[in-house]
Amino acid sequence: MQRLFSDFRRPSGQRPGAIWWSFIAVATVVVFALPQVLDLAQLLDLSVVFVLALLALSMSFLWGYVGILSFGQTAFFGLGGYVYAVAAMNWGDTTLPFLLGILVPLAFAALLGVFMVYGKISDIYFSVMTLVITLILNKAMRATSGDQYVIGDVRLNGQNGIPGVPPLQVPWNPTVTLFIDHVYYLSAALIVLVYVGLRLLLTTSFGRVLVGIRENERRIELLGYDARRYKFAAFALSGGVAGLSGTMFAIWGNFVAPEMFGLGQAAEVIIWVIVGGKSTLIGPIVGTGIIQYLTSWLGTQGVGQVTLVLGVVLVVFVLLFKEGLVPTLGSLIARLFGGRRKQGEAE
């Protein structure tokens, strides 16, 4: 049990053990068995949790393991959605737009990385600058309501967003499109794959250097690593993951809107990651689920201002539960079981 929880906490650079793998296997089976018991509306709710959890993962990977807090994830998220929407509506085919929805945000992140990572601006300026970029993109997209803002055949529509984004087609048979339950399976598969992928990446030598940068960037540089190159690569990678999340979001809702870039969206990502706990990769996934269901529950309870509650949640977590839910729970349980084990050893 203690092993299980230590596998979820900050990686020691070791490969995860058998317990972790069996957890992944069980979770995968459960997630893929759920459509047997849930109806379509519940599947729809759960799919968006998985899609948004990808966004949360992209942020917590950068923040929890490389030590960079990037608000740009929301920008890459929105960009991915818009790129998929515009490309798919222009071309009719969806395979290439899906890939572009990942690659364009990745390239944009790389471009920003050239300026900001290689400019060696300090971490906190990095956070603020990425936030500013997100805000400006949001503003620019809102201002595109006129007829003259057209890409190909698609009007950008400003505030109103682009409705009728085509569903994803099966790559080898474009006449078949994905229905709600298929989107569920796809998003479930993606979240498992990206989670496992990032977790394993952190155990490679590349990942260990990243964690080293978080711990002490100067020391990593003195050891002969070019920290900027590693940060740059991590930033671009997380941009790609955020773009994937945005693309899936557009596919899930058949809709993109400037809110995807908005400050509200950026704040929600932060709250998912903070509530779940950024020092794990599983925490943000849990946090996304909790907050998503909390906000929709608050909506049904007739609480008009959900942001008011979210704001209070954020302040309380920063002041009182800095580590977030999963690490707090994890260390609690680990201490419980660890204590017992030590006694056993003493005997």
Binding site: I124, I270, I274, Q305, L308, L310, G311, V312, V318
Partner: peptide, 21 residues
């Protein structure tokens, strides 16, 4: 520094919510 950023962000959401109400 980072925590002030997050806490004031929470504050900003709270203020927008309360003034709208």
């Amino acid at each position: 520094v980072l925590d002030t950023l997050l806490a004031t962000w929470g504050l900003s959401l709270f203020l927008v919510g309360i003034v709208t109400t």
